[in-house]
Design a protein around this nucleic acid. Structure first.
Length: 276
DNA sequence: GGCTTATCCTGGGCGC
DNA sequence: TGCGCCCAGGATAAGC
């Protein structure tokens, strides 16, 4: 499931493959995948545009065209943007097909149909069409500091796990990396967010950077449904320390990894290394 | 206002 | 083999 590192890997791949490419046609196979405008308008408005800039904000992919308009995408749980040739086999979960003038194809595949695409006119900013972008917290790789977290978490009574998943607090962290970061920091996921000491917050920020950077280097995670823009699975799942390891031994102390339901999500932790 | 829970959606895994 | 149930989770709406 794509989080910040996976989106970053997809973005880098798309930039390599599609910069300067002109879209010839668009076929929407599942109308639900288009958030804005209507699927019909989307298919009519996008052809003829040329990809120029590629930017990531949190888990959003923001792709600008040379005329100032743009294409935004959120992969949600199972979405993938894959560049293929027209000879390659079409995935059965193909939702939107972009054909380039050069013969390349961009496939938006999405098994669970949670992913969304937006077309943004040249006179409009991405933030005007996607309000979530206005409220999004700092980028963890570049702008996050422990002072910011300390200030924001001081009055939060919710769990630290729920807080890490809040995109308005920090952009881009999802369930997998939140669990990994908390394990490395030695913090139980159910710890009250306001209870973390300054030292723990400093360590938390360091570990957020470390885990996300490691995951990008590994090409993202392949736990469940993620693949990059070349259709290749990542390698980070081989390095996950707690996520998806319920009942297996902790890599530090050999206690069995446990799982609890928290904020509607499963939280994986070591009961000895992450005491409440 | 802060927080939790339900909802959307599909396929894989499991038990019967 | 086939059926039904449960689970996975990001964003958002609804409810407390």
């Amino acid at each position: 499931m794509p989080e910040l590192p996976e989106v970053e890997c997809v973005l880098r791949g798309l930039e390599k493959s599609l910069a300067g490419e002109r879209i010839e046609s668009v076929k929407v196979l599942r109308e639900q995948s288009i958030a804005c405008p209507s699927a019909k308008s989307f298919a009519k408005l996008v052809p003829g545009r040329v990809f120029s800039d590629f930017v990531r904000r949190g888990k959003y992919l923001l792709m600008s065209f040379d005329d100032g308009s743009g294409l935004a995408c959120h992969l949600r749980m199972s979405g993938a943007l894959v560049v293929k040739t027209k000879e390659e086999e079409k995935d059965k979960h193909l939702r939107v097909l972009f054909k380039m003038q050069s013969g390349k194809e961009l496939h938006f595949e999405d098994m669970r149909v949670f992913g969304r695409l937006w077309f943004v006119k040249s006179s409009t900013k991405f933030q005007e069409v996607i309000p979530a972008l206005n409220k999004m917290g700092p980028e963890p790789l570049t702008d996050l500091t422990h002072n910011y977290l300390q200030e924001k978490l001081a009055t939060r009574s919710q769990s630290i796990k729920a807080a890490l998943l809040d995109q308005e607090l920090i952009a881009g962290i999802g369930n997998i990396y939140a669990d990994e970061v908390l394990f490395l920091t030695g913090v139980h996921p159910q710890t009250r967010a306001s209870d973390l000491s300054t030292a723990k917050l400093k360590k938390l920020v360091e570990n957020i950077r470390f885990v996300l950077e490691q995951a990008i280097v590994a090409g993202g995670s392949s736990i469940r449904d993620y693949k990059d823009s070349f259709g290749v699975n990542g390698n980070y799942q081989n390095e996950a320390l707690v996520y998806g390891r319920v009942g297996l031994s902790c890599t530090k102390c050999e206690r069995k990894i446990e799982r609890v339901k928290l904020a509607g999500r499963s939280a994986h932790f070591c009961p000895r290394c992450q005491r409440r």
